[in-house]
Design a protein around this nucleic acid. Structure first.
Lengths: 209, 209
DNA sequence: TACTTTGGACTGACCGGTCAGTCCAAAGAA
DNA sequence: TTCTTTGGACTGACCGGTCAGTCCAAAGTA
């Protein structure tokens, strides 16, 4: 919201608690089967406090989305820049972003679940918010792909948008499956599997590093 | 379903109409914000009819899930078998399955949306159904990967489960993005982008076919 | 032919419960 | 004083599920 400047310390602490509570509940149950009362209870505040801090249940959720995606795209950008400073290739940058994506999902699995569950729905109240927010994250990946093609490092054949979507999907689904169905695996395992795929070494004609 | 013998023609026609109505509404709005009345209305029947044909809203949804995934896994299996008959490689089989997946999503986008939105939620009433249903679809992909490794065609390094999840995610997300954000693209475009990725030719060291 | 019966499919008003959002007096906190 | 939170009572809309009753084609009956 625009009045962050005038938000007191205690108030933003309360808002943070509400975000925390809301994100897990909504990931588990979905937006509309999660009640405001539940959110308040888990955050340890009164229901009135929710409405003192947010105009409505929907607005609480929209701010949650914005907040979460900001964290993600910052992480991605940071990962890509990190390899650039170390003179890495663009494939290295993509690989680092995959890792950053996995780490993000590892840290905020609930947010990821909720994001995936909402992204492709039409007719939701927060349509516009979600569109903006998605663009912000995807743009980072597309940017790196574009640079890779420009530098002649990636094939000119590739379709930037579709490839970016596919890469995101690869990471997203592999990570969610990891968390949901084989949580005992390490992040390295998952990262390894995705790296292999990114570098096209699944086909077995693998050049050993 | 098992009672096909005792289900009259008109009754199963009604059930079909209800499936149709439910799948799009739930894809748009989610399970719990879709009312039984809406479903009935769109199907052109009375609310009571829904409860005459299904025990509950949840059961209607569970049957819908089972029905949809049966269609999908049949398509995938069929695609894989098709290449086997033509002496294709396992990579060809994977490619054919990607295409089959895209065609499925093209035909039933609403079902796909709804499936993705529900799959990684915890605490849902239809948890068991979804688990079974997921396994059925993923198993087809894992099977082909396993055969590919056994035949020495795919690298032994690969992790079957994670790679299968990643491939599914690639197709899923690319296709949903296609439908949601660039519906004017052709299926061939999308398939081409994914093929490139599968065959590891994104890196630009592309071996022309 | 003229009637009655049967049972499956469907209807829609209704009930009981739930929930977002409102309101407010009083208490902390800064 | 001003901002923030509390706690809980209340409202009104909405919704899943129920149920008594309608409809009708087919089968039986005389």
């Amino acid at each position: 919201m625009t009045s962050a400047r005038t938000t007191s310390r205690s108030r933003s602490a309360t808002r943070e608690k509400l975000f925390q509570a809301a994100v897990t509940l909504i990931a588990e149950q979905g937006f509309s089967s999660t009640t405001v009362e539940e959110i308040a209870e888990r955050a340890g505040v009164a229901k009135g406090t929710v409405y003192y801090n947010f105009a409505s249940k929907t607005e609480l959720f929209e701010e949650l989305l914005r907040h979460g995606v900001e964290l993600l795209s910052a992480d991605l950008r940071h990962a890509a820049e990190g390899t650039a400073e170390r003179d890495g290739t663009k494939v290295d940058a993509l690989d680092a972003m995959i890792r950053a994506g996995l780490m993000f999902i590892d840290r905020y699995p609930a947010f990821t679940q909720l994001y995936v569950a909402e992204l492709w729905r039409t007719n939701r109240a927060w349509n516009d918010t979600l569109l903006v927010v998605r663009q912000e994250a995807v743009a980072v990946v597309e940017g790196v792909l574009r640079e890779g093609v420009a530098a002649g490092e990636l094939s000119e054949e590739i379709d930037i948008q579709l490839t970016a979507a596919a890469l995101v999907g690869m990471v997203l689904v592999a990570a969610l499956d990891w968390k949901a169905f084989q949580p005992e695996r390490s992040l390295e395992d998952v990262h390894g599997a995705l790296s292999l795929l990114l570098q096209g070494r699944v086909g077995g004609r693998g050049r050993p590093r």
